[in-house]
């Protein structure tokens, strides 16, 4: 299979949020006014100013000990993107070389609600002023120029890695098997359907409500 993929090994994530800010830096997105609502997580939602959010989820495991799960949420760059159902021309295009699902300025003409409903992961958002739809670009401009996606580059622990799609899919499946030894519920999320593949130690619902899709 061609193109590239990103592996998100959440078992190595420390929620340093380097990826979240690196995304803002590269894409020159504004910092928005936020409030603390009893969690480290902020901003609260994806928007035309935020393509990526580290989700913080905590609770108590069966052993009575606390857990704190970190899930760096972004577009999965699906192989068959549900958000493209309404596309007529080139509002949304797939870069054949990289595999990136890229929203062009023409997305302003798309039905936002329908596009959003087409996405199992609740990713697309609309710029209130321009009506253009926005989301993670796979840093297609960087990737096309031999650079790593900004978020992958920023990641210190190897929680995010980037590579050829077949290698990343294999790595995801291998990591799932490794983690299963200690964490029976460990799972690689639909590696054959998406380019951004998450590996989790536990039930996806304990990470983020849309981790495994709606």
């Amino acid at each position: 299979m061609s193109g590239y993929s990103i592996l998100v090994d959440t078992s190595k994530c420390t929620a340093c949020r380097g990826c979240q800010i690196a995304c803002k830096e590269w894409n020159q997105l504004a910092g928005t006014a936020t409030k603390n609502t009893g969690s480290y997580e902020n901003p609260k939602d994806l928007s035309s100013d935020t393509y990526k959010i580290v989700r913080f989820a905590e609770g108590q495991g069966a052993n009575g000990k606390a857990f704190w799960h970190f899930f760096t949420e972004q577009c999965r760059h699906c192989l068959s993107p549900g958000c493209m159902a309404e596309v007529e021309e080139d509002e949304i295009v797939v870069d054949e070389k990289t595999g990136a699902v890229v929203y062009t300025p023409k997305t302003k003409d798309l039905d936002f609600k329908a596009t959003l409903e087409g996405c199992p992961y609740d990713i697309p958002r609309q710029d209130a002023k321009t009506k253009v739809l926005t989301k993670c670009t796979f840093c297609n401009d960087r990737v096309g120029n031999g650079m790593l996606p900004a978020c992958v580059k920023a990641c210190p622990t190897g929680a995010m890695t980037f590579g050829k799609r077949d290698e990343i899919v294999a790595a995801a499946k291998k990591r799932e098997a490794e983690l299963k030894k200690d964490f029976p519920k460990a799972v690689a999320l639909t590696p054959d359907d998406v380019r951004v593949i998450y590996v989790l130690k536990d039930d996806p619902k304990t990470y983020w409500k849309y981790a495994a899709g709606r």
């Binding site: 949020r17 979240q20 803002k24 928005t32 409030k35 603390n36 902020n42």
Partner: peptide, 13 residues
């Protein structure tokens, strides 16, 4: 004073 950082962690808790 940095909009990206204060957005991520805005208030004392």
């Amino acid at each position: 004073w940095q909009p990206w950082l204060i957005e991520a962690q805005p208030q004392v808790f």
